[in-house]
């Protein structure tokens, strides 16, 4: 291999990446921690070099985060969205991947369709979802129910106020959950299908010889052999779920709630973006660190569970 006097060459190859990472990744992490622990940090004062001395270290920012008006709501919304969407979308993706893997004709065709949501922008499609659930008009004067309500009414159901002014939290949440699942499916199907296609066919041959019922093949062969992929999809799903933000902006706009109920659907990331324009970087940093702590703990729990369940 290369002898040691050429070591500097290796660092030359690495230099662009390392410089950029230092500026835009390592420094932000350190700075966020520093800001979070500075009381009364004020960016204007910092820029003007005023009163720098009066900044004291403390946990004031964290206290502000927990006392922040929408914090509990944001935490609840984030948790509900994550806990519902991750298992449902994983299970659906698994079923679709298994079904896709079991067919021969039209497989590529269906694969392309299921991949489509991946290449779209979550804000743009969020607006389409909003249009589908949108109801124009009030009471007897409703001029348009929206296509989803039309379908419900076609089957004899009642028109529901999904996302408009005065709508309840539950319909709001249902719309968001449907949208997030729709958005999350392609990536999961892709990963799981890739895993399925690399599974050794001999296991299935053996099961066939023993005429094992399909359900047992699924639970005893497919799922265990696929467990590393499933674990990966679930862990990244949880991380992504706790960072949910743009899907809510897509459907409800940056008010983060239906008209008249501003912030009722806010998430933790939404809260960070809320406080940024107020120049309260200390509070935003502390909120980001709280989010990191939550994600870290959840990921650790996921890793522990998957250690027991995953068969490598």
């Amino acid at each position: 291999m290369v002898d040691s006097k050429h070591q500097w060459k290796a660092w030359l190859y690495l230099a662009p990446a390392i410089v950029l990472l230092l500026v835009f990744t390592v420094w932000p992490i350190l700075n966020t921690v520093r800001l979070a622990f500075l009381n009364n940090y004020n960016s204007l004062a910092a820029v003007n070099q005023e009163e720098v001395v009066t900044f004291t270290f403390g946990i004031e920012n964290f206290r502000k985060v927990f006392n922040y008006d929408g914090f509990i709501i944001a935490l609840r919304n984030t948790a509900v969205l994550t806990i519902v969407t991750v298992p449902v979308s994983t299970l659906l993706a698994l079923l679709i991947a298994v079904a896709l893997n079991s067919i021969k004709p039209l497989q590529k065709f269906f694969q392309t369709i299921f991949f489509l949501p991946y290449v779209t922008n979550s804000i743009a499609i969020g607006m389409v979802f909003a249009a589908m659930f949108n109801r124009v008009g009030v009471g007897k004067l409703i001029t348009s129910h929206g296509i989803v309500n039309n379908i419900i009414m076609f089957f004899g159901g009642e028109s529901i106020n999904w996302i408009n002014a005065g709508s309840d939290l539950v319909p709001n949440m249902i719309v968001l959950i449907i949208y997030i699942i729709w958005n999350a499916l392609p990536f999961k199907i892709l990963v799981l299908l890739g895993g399925l296609q690399s599974v050794n066919k001999q296991y299935y041959e053996a099961a066939k010889v023993d005429s094992t019922p399909r359900w047992r093949v699924f639970t005893k062969i497919t799922v265990p052999l696929l467990s590393p992929m499933i674990a990966y999809v679930v862990i990244t799903g949880f991380i992504g779920g706790f960072k949910e933000y743009s899907s809510i902006v897509g459907i409800f706009g940056d008010q983060m709630g239906p008209p008249g109920a501003k912030g009722s659907l806010n998430t933790i990331v939404g809260m960070i973006y809320d406080v940024l324009p107020k120049q309260d970087y200390g509070l935003a940093s502390a909120a980001a660190l709280v989010l990191f702590a939550i994600i870290f703990v959840v990921t650790m729990i996921n890793m522990q569970v998957s250690k027991k369940r995953v068969h490598y």
Binding site: F24, W27, I29, K243, V269, I272, Y281, A288, L291, I295
Partner: peptide, 24 residues
Amino acid sequence: ALFAALLATMMIPGELFTITNYQT
């Protein structure tokens, strides 16, 4: 060590960088 450090940054949520990068 460098490779491990690189992988570790993958686990950190991007929102943590937003504030400082904005200032930078």
